[in-house]
Design a binder for these strands. Sequence first.
DNA 1: GTGCTGACTAAGCGCTTGCTCAGCATGCTG
DNA 2: CAGCATGCTGAGCAAGCGCTTAGTCAGCAC
Lengths: 208, 208
Amino acid sequence: MTSTPIADLWPTLPGADTRPEAAYRLLQAAVESFAERGFHATTTRDIATAAGMSPAALYIHYQSKAALLAEISRAGHAATLTLVREAAAGEGGPAERMRRVVEQFTAWHARARTVGRVVNYELHALPEDAYAEVAALRLDIEREVSALIEAGVAAGEFEVSEVRTAARAVTSLGIDVSRWYTERSSGTPEELGRRYGELVLRMLGARV
Amino acid sequence: MTSTPIADLWPTLPGADTRPEAAYRLLQAAVESFAERGFHATTTRDIATAAGMSPAALYIHYQSKAALLAEISRAGHAATLTLVREAAAGEGGPAERMRRVVEQFTAWHARARTVGRVVNYELHALPEDAYAEVAALRLDIEREVSALIEAGVAAGEFEVSEVRTAARAVTSLGIDVSRWYTERSSGTPEELGRRYGELVLRMLGARV
DNA sequence: GTGCTGACTAAGCGCTTGCTCAGCATGCTG
DNA sequence: CAGCATGCTGAGCAAGCGCTTAGTCAGCAC
């Protein structure tokens, strides 16, 4: 089973098609390294070597090690928000749409777990301005889920005592997948998505 | 709202009563620093300064920076396992006991979120031998939850299609609390525990 | 008092870090 | 062909890292 997380990520980067291939290789190496060892334990030599270059080459394509992280984080969050928005905006009632959101959100965090780890667990290493951008995107994702739960409650499809906590639980379940999921985990990302979709609907008291 | 997470942790350390107070201050400072900045971004000077000592003093009480992390992780995991075991072993049927486990597990991860962050998100920085110990404890925790779900299914109190995935979801929800919970979060740790207990019982299809 | 111990510090060692820069090969342009 | 921009490297700098060392000092036994 091969996973190609950054291939999905790359097109969302500004000027993706005009960038030299080396910049992509560096990004890929950075994602892998940051995910495995964490931002601070990763050296610029690690990244450059993994991309088949000398450390100096990194600074031709990116301003700094932190800029690389910022780019990964921005693109990863943007991709996730798009995924959630599209799944939530499709046809069907709130329950059906929520199922789709959880399936996609969960599967993405399993499939793109390397990107997911960087996106979710290296926030503290971001420069301040990049953090602000990314925090806004995270809030948007949570709001999208909250809105969907509220719609479900209004339509009488969900029964929830506290929307905020429920929304936290839903996103939390998906995010944490990127922490524990490995290639050796039983079930494909899509299977896990379906199971989690089922669990979440029950959690929300869906009458379906 | 003040939280004293390490105070709970300290007694579980070997030779806790004979250890000098300085060792406790260093541990406390290390937990705070590791939780806030991560293991690799924390310097021995950070820890020592926060404990009101010079960097060299650290090495009188602990063999290395990594040894400090190992002690925190070991003690934190041991405390969590004890908490789960006691909650699961109490009186009542599987559903009642599961509610108690989730309430306690969740509340602990909210209350002791600094310790929780180190315990759950700094595993990769552990020396190999400490990692092996800690991994065994994590497996025990997961097994405890799985066994409780199986008991519930056998007793006809739960309805679950896949025990492993359900157990993952239950522990996952609790663990992730230490990532997002802050002092500013709405609701006390105990309130959150109660809400999560409710959500999990529904997720497991509890007929109560 | 004397001798000893254990907690601690100031200074700093050896090494690694993020990052820079002069220079080189390549290929495009006039 | 020259001239020049582009992508990259080898060498290396300043800063900061984990950890060690030599030595200080309060407290206790005798």
